[in-house]
Design a protein around this nucleic acid. Structure first.
Lengths: 281, 281
DNA sequence: TTGCTCCTCACGTCACGTGAGGTGGC
DNA sequence: TTGCTCCTCACGTCACGTGAGGTGGC
């Protein structure tokens, strides 16, 4: 069945390490075509060289082993190409994400004490709305958010609705801690009726502190930090769910740096924390 | 000493997970400003929020924890900025590397059976040369290679040398297996004399098989694979060191796709492998 | 016969995530 | 008092790398 070569030779000509080849054997990614029963020596056939080259290139592109395995066993060329295309798309997104993260860092370092946006207190009135909610894992929030935001805007247009304010969101604190939680996106309406996945809800009145965040959602931690520090300084008691009002977003401009979000954190007056009560007594 | 907040609150406003904060405490990256002796509860001060934001951004840019620690403890702003700049440079290189890897993959998939370069046998004559050698870890080879190649070219120019052939390299197989080994770069000369780090050597005569590699060194595994498969098919015995002749490289064009390298693998006639001997007997 | 190659554990690395099982604070 | 938050292990993950200690092939 043709000549075979040892791990060492195979490593040399594929530019993979012997340790790596043993690992690829162990996880079943590239098992040697023959293994000596007595000595355990691995022997590779020459047509495994091409697969090794493909694997090396895909690993250089940070494709997970499991995905590479899927590429190798893809039954048709079109299915294989689809998997590869999908990964290149992921890389493309990764590159963009990195560019954004670099901008984010520059912004943080540059505009340190420029003019930090104001924090104001406000009372949000009771409000009817048409809402789509979901219980989510933290990792899924961003994808869900942009998809659902688009869905609600489409609904506003197709059903000819007349929003009484910007589309808003309500998020469990847990989601920002990378824990599972619930998220809701809504459009304020005078008389909301169920359409598709969207259901009418009533937002209760709420005392909130508000700040404006300009830029990508990935930088919204800056606004959350402002609010959180304010809450601690004023000894307020933060509510468990945070509201966001989307004043300008993907619908208005593709440039995330121009997006504007108002972030409103419900609070209760906390002039009487437990320690202060204890102090009084 | 000012208000403090719990891990949970700190996690919410910094958009880090509680688990991550505990880890950053454990490794000393972001220890809480105060820890309750009785309960072990972590308490963070408000001015730690800014550092948390910086850490989050640097981690998003895949900066290792140790490097982030260095940024945080940098005594002066200029030293800190230098560390940040260095990391952004690394990212920049990473982005380029990814682009190249994508091209490499496309090339592999596209030009599958185009016209695979020929393999020829040849006898390289004994040859004098001026050489720079080093014992290297595999990870350092690329950097050493480009630096030393430039150094030799500079030497040729400054000393007005007259090379008898292209600048060449000799590499232990081990280096391609990601193991430590020795590498040598050399310029063939009629009468080489020591200059700086460069020493005269004599290349012994060698029977080699040769193939041409066009493109980036990162794709040279393709040429090595061709040669390796040929060696196995012909039952030749490969030598432990491989030679490369740089016919076109960074000195000629910045576009790696246009680089041309001749790869020559020394061999011994191996018509008599052990199995064949056994067969004869 | 001597090295060299190859083998198998077992453990380390990096930056966390995932439970289990238990305590503290309001 | 009840939940909720917080705590500490211990272990898992991903893709290998690093020895230790030993055997096989020419």
């Amino acid at each position: 069945v043709g000549p075979t070569i040892t791990v060492g030779q195979f490593a040399t000509i594929t530019h993979l390490s012997v340790k790596t080849l043993r690992y690829y054997h162990e996880v079943g990614l590239l098992p040697p075509s023959h293994i000596d029963e007595h000595s355990g020596y691995r022997h590779y056939s020459l047509d495994q060289v091409a697969n090794a080259g493909l694997i090396r290139r895909l690993r250089n592109l940070r494709m997970p082993i499991a995905d590479i395995r899927a590429v190798l066993v893809a039954p048709t060329r079109s299915e294989r190409d689809e998997l590869l295309r999908a990964h290149l798309d992921r890389l493309e997104r990764e590159l963009r994400t990195t560019r954004v993260a670099i901008e984010s860092l520059r912004a943080l370092l540059g505009t340190d004490a420029d003019h930090p946006p104001q924090i104001v207190r406000r009372t949000l009135p009771e409000q009817q709305a048409l809402a789509i909610g979901a219980a989510l894992a933290a990792a899924d929030v961003m994808a869900w958010w942009s998809a659902t935001l688009a869905e609600l805007r489409a609904l506003v247009h197709s059903e000819n609705l007349h929003p009484l304010g910007p589309i808003s969101g309500i998020f469990d604190q847990a989601l920002f801690r990378h824990e599972p939680g619930t998220a809701t996106l809504l459009v304020p309406l005078a008389d909301p009726k169920s359409i598709g996945r969207a259901r009418p809800i009533v937002l209760p009145q709420a005392d909130v502190i508000v700040t404006v965040h300009t830029g990508s959602p990935h930088d919204s931690d800056l606004a959350y930090s402002r609010l959180g520090c304010y809450i601690a300084q004023q000894s307020l008691i933060p509510g468990p769910r945070i509201r966001e009002h989307y004043l300008r977003d993907a619908f208005d401009t593709p440039d995330e740096q121009e997006w504007i979000t108002e972030i409103a954190w419900p609070i209760r007056q906390g002039g009487t924390t437990q320690t202060e009560v204890a102090h009084r007594i």
